[in-house]
């Protein structure tokens, strides 16, 4: 069994079945991609895996524990973390502080300990700041640590959101369209960052429209269309899959 095991998850919004009995497994140490046309249910699937939406049916288990219906912060504590399609940062905080918030589950200082500035708390704060700087260097944001997050350009915001997610030291990271709005150079840097993160021991599931990036980095691809899984396999097979081509051609025909 995989690190993440998704079995028959379903989510309905009124008459619309956004995710329809989807099952897949994610194996440790891989980069897994979820692709599909707009409205296929990819983001909804992420919401179901991370506790932001409750499934109408199906189960999700992560490293042997059933996490279906758990509240989001508890899932993060277990080591499963996510980013958002539309990058949600804490704009009024600094870049460094954003990563420190990402480290919330790995630090412990509460109101009382912090108010009294206990030695344990001071040490923890110092170590956390060091670690946060290290994570920022990992995504090449080291030199803007003290900038206001809201002042960063788009490409760097996406990287910061990844650094913040890494702050929890996750076992599995779900990224929702990390390359959206990035130029070619930034996308190349992102691919490099993803591999670096994977090599540091974090398993990755990425939802992405940029097929170049998907084919480049992923070991395994799940294809969704209208809420249903229509294909699954390694990049080379997915590219040739008739059902996948059909789904994407259908989309282009509609777009035209």
């Amino acid at each position: 069994m995989g690190m993440l095991s998704v079995q028959g998850i379903t989510k309905r919004f009124g008459g619309l079945t956004a995710v329809d009995a989807v099952s897949f497994e994610v194996h440790e140490g891989t980069i897994h991609a979820i692709i599909g046309p707009n409205g296929a249910g990819k983001s909804t699937a992420f919401n179901l895996l991370t506790g932001f939406e409750k499934p109408d049916a199906g189960t999700v288990s992560f490293e042997g524990a059933t996490i279906t219906g758990m509240r989001p912060h508890r899932i993060v504590r277990l080591g499963l973390v996510r980013t958002f399609q539309n990058t949600v940062l804490f704009d009024d905080m600094t870049v460094l502080e954003n990563v420190l918030v990402g480290m919330h589950v790995r630090t412990r200082a509460g109101f009382i300990g912090s108010a009294l500035a206990l030695p344990r708390v001071r040490t923890e704060e110092r170590l956390a700041a060091e670690e946060a700087h290290r994570l920022l260097r990992l995504v090449d944001l080291g030199e803007v640590a003290d900038a206001r997050a809201g002042d960063l350009p788009h490409g760097r915001r996406r990287l910061l959101e990844i650094a913040r997610a890494l702050g929890s030291r996750p076992r599995l990271m779900l990224l929702d369209e990390p390359a959206a709005g990035l130029n070619n150079a930034e996308t190349a840097q992102l691919a490099e960052t993803l591999r670096r993160v994977r090599d540091s021991g974090v398993t990755i599931v990425v939802v992405e429209h940029d097929m170049g990036l998907v084919m480049d980095v992923s070991d395994e691809i799940v294809v969704l269309n209208e809420g249903r899984k229509i294909a699954e396999g390694p990049p080379l097979l997915i590219q040739k899959d008739p059902a996948v081509i059909e789904a994407y051609l259908g989309e282009e025909a509609v777009d035209a």
Binding site: T50, F52, R71, P72, H73, V76, R77, V81, R82, T83, F84, V88, L89, F90, D91, D92, M93, E97, L100, V101, G102, H104, V105, T107, R108, A109, G110, F111, S114, A115, L116, A117, V121, E124, E125, A128, R164, A165, G167, S168
Partner: peptide
């Protein structure tokens, strides 16, 4: 002492976006 440490950051995070705060593991 509180506002410049972990609880203070968590409070500001909640103000910024409760959804993102939860995604950072904060029990909002």
């Amino acid at each position: 002492n509180v506002v410049r440490r972990r609880p203070g950051r968590a409070l500001r995070a909640i103000h910024g976006s409760e959804m993102a705060a939860q995604a950072c593991g904060i029990d909002t």
